[in-house]
Design a protein around this nucleic acid. Structure first.
Lengths: 222, 222
DNA sequence: TTGTGGTATGCGGTTTACCGTAAGGTAGGG
DNA sequence: CCCTACCTTACGGTAAACCGCATACCACAA
């Protein structure tokens, strides 16, 4: 079983719940933090001792408060950890249900498990811990179908996402073309931008560009 | 102190955490459910005994799963309870931070407290319970400023919200006009619809209608 | 080199959105 | 009753978005 587990989670009710759940397993030491920055510090510090962490369980969204933060989300924390302790196992534990975000985590950030918060979360966490211990990748319940059923999203590249972000930011078509030109990105012409938007509207079954941004937001692409 | 409290919350980690927190208070009986429908059933049933509930603590969002549901959200639950037991005190406990939604809860649904999930949630819940017991309205920490600072939103009426919803659904301007006409709503002409959209763009400082939709979603108006 | 498929671009016409102005309607006060 | 203020509607010109087509560009293979 894992020796030393770090929990990064800002809701203190969940804190207690999680600790309780994990206590049933045979884990030597459980450390909890409420801020991403603290998580990174603890991991760094433990690396220089004889007992580094071997598992991180982290939420994705952390509330803002009076404290200054350099790391503001679970995603950032994960990215910051990779160069420090690349072999550290990571379980993401979040309410995030938007496929785009989750897909990114599994494919880009290479996390070891994704557990969606919900009714069965305690059981799911235990399952995830066991599976990750064996070296498997795990994602909770119905996600496997969802991840397969949405190859449409994998057809959108980062330029599509940028385009959608710019649209949502209030740029007009020609301003977007200008932006693409300045950044020296491919398909920078107004015509190409229009085509791209069109393609996205077909892909996401949107009637108008307003609906397109609504859908993009809903799916977590923005 | 309250005699009998019902907790409606689908995350079981929070469940345990909340129960723990409340156990410090002098509450006779704490009942927890994971579904809105169950909450309504319990409340109805208890009304016919000598010990009805006198406090409800409820989340807003409940995950979908295999079970059929008639009530799918905390908002719906609250609305369903009003005619059944109007004097029941209600504390909403949610991660929802979008002002539009929260404002609605406090003004329309007349809940007694709103506690945002986060780092200090346990303390906040205890504070809320005490204040509600005294008959006060309570909302956590920084919300009071936020609620005051956003009188802009109170300038949008339900027709504006409907309009934004229709925009996000992909209706064109003339289709929206048609829709307003069918429903016999005021300011139904294409010209008025355009004016309305314009007003909203000024109000929310949006350059394009795409951005307008994005902002509306972000603020929880949709 | 030439051909070929795919992508990018440019352009023109049509539709839709945007925006100002003026006319029509309605309610309240004099 | 009229006047006034405000909201609603109609309309027209301009700008933006939409759409199809033709051309240009590029990579790759024959």
């Amino acid at each position: 079983m894992f020796q030393k587990v770090l929990i990064a989670e800002d809701q203190n009710s969940i804190h207690k719940g999680l600790e309780n759940t994990l206590r049933g397993l045979d884990i030597k030491e459980i450390v909890t933090v409420q801020y991403c920055d603290d998580a990174l510090l603890k991991i760094r510090a433990a690396l220089n001792t004889e007992s580094p962490f071997d598992l991180l369980i982290t939420d994705l969204s952390f509330k803002e408060d009076h404290r200054d933060r350099t790391l503001t989300s679970g995603e950032e924390l994960i990215m910051a950890i990779k160069p420090v302790q690349p072999e550290l196992k990571i379980i993401v534990f979040s309410v995030e249900h938007r496929i785009g975000k989750i897909k990114n985590l599994l494919e880009v950030s290479k996390v070891d498990a994704y557990v969606e918060k919900g009714r069965e979360e305690s059981k799911e966490i235990i399952k995830a811990v066991h599976r990750v211990l064996k070296g498997d990748i795990y994602y909770s319940h119905n996600l496997s179908q969802l991840l397969r059923s949405t190859d449409d999203i994998s057809q959108t590249d980062k330029y599509d996402e940028l385009l959608l972000q710019l649209l949502a930011k209030g740029l007009k078509r020609d301003q977007i073309a200008l932006y693409f030109e300045e950044k020296d990105l491919p398909a920078r012409s107004l015509s190409s931008i229009e085509k791209r938007i069109n393609k996205l509207k077909v892909l996401f079954d949107a009637n108008t560009s307003e609906q397109l941004v609504a859908i993009a937001i809903d799916r977590g692409l923005i």
